[in-house]
Simulated scan of single mutants.
Amino acid sequence: MTIKIGIITASDRASAGVYEDISGQAIIDTLNDYLTSSWEPLYRVIPDIQADIEKAMIELADDGGCCLIVTTGGTGPAPRDVTPEATEAVCEKMMPGFGELMRQVSLQYVPTAILSRQTAGIRGKALIVNLPGKPKSIRECLDAVFPAIPYCIDLIEGPYLECNESVIKAFRPKGA
């Protein structure tokens, strides 16, 4: 069985073709490094419009069968940064620990990490995680939070994600 993972880039300029979406590709490259499970990205590049972001999340979770949806972009304080609001609007449960850990890790590199509002939440059987927009920050944040993601997906009755343990170790409690 091929596991489906949603990748959403929220960017007015990338969605308009002004520049290439390197952030979405950075997520795909990182997940290719992490996962030994067979997986397929369902990839979307959309403008920074809350209704569009919500629609993409709902479609990937409900119709696309994604167990994980990873977003990039739209997590800052600028007026058009609305990815966290979209995430909160479509999720039944929020998982604030993801954002807390990502900001803590990012603060080791840049003092402006305090401006980031990334978060995470559960919609049905999908975990939605908001990442920052820069490829270097994406990898740093995923390195921090990904060890908890496979077990979270287990708990919401998603597929079993297997990791390349030489790259990243998923944590599952004994007996889980």
Rank of each mutant, 00 (worst) to 15 (best):
Glu20Gly: 00
Leu155Pro: 09
Glu20Gln: 15
Arg172Pro: 02
Tyr43His: 08
Lys55Glu: 15
Glu140Asp: 05
Pro159Cys: 11
Cys66Thr: 07
Ala144Lys: 03
Arg123Glu: 07
Ala56Met: 05
Gly121Glu: 02
Ile22Cys: 07
Tyr43Cys: 06
Glu100Val: 11
Val45Asp: 02
Asp63Ile: 08
Gln104Ser: 13
Leu161Ser: 03
Thr36His: 11
Gly73Phe: 02
Ile28Cys: 10
Phe146Lys: 00
Gly24Thr: 01
Gly17Phe: 10
Thr9Glu: 04
Arg123Tyr: 01
Arg13Val: 13
Thr87Trp: 00
Pro135Ser: 11
Gly99His: 08
Leu142Pro: 00
Ala176Asn: 11
Arg117Cys: 15
Glu157Tyr: 14
Ser166Asn: 13
Thr30Trp: 09
Ala86Asn: 05
Pro77Ser: 06
Cys163Val: 15
Ala51Ser: 15
Cys152Arg: 04
Val167Thr: 08
Thr71His: 03
Ser11Thr: 10
Gly24Pro: 04
Pro79Met: 14
Val18Ala: 13
Thr112His: 12
Tyr160Gly: 13
Asp48Cys: 04
Cys141Phe: 04
Ala89Thr: 09
Gly133Ser: 12
Pro173Asp: 07
Cys152Phe: 09
Asp154Ile: 01
Ala113Arg: 08
Glu59Gly: 06
Ala14Ile: 12
Asp29His: 07
Val129Leu: 08
Lys136Pro: 08
Tyr160Val: 15
Met94Pro: 07
Met1Trp: 14
Ser137Cys: 08
Ala113Thr: 11
Val145Tyr: 01
Leu42His: 09
Ile28Ala: 06
Val129Pro: 00
Cys67Val: 13
Val18Arg: 06
Ala26Val: 04
Leu31Phe: 14
Ala170Asn: 01
Pro159Phe: 04
Arg13Ile: 10
Thr87Leu: 01
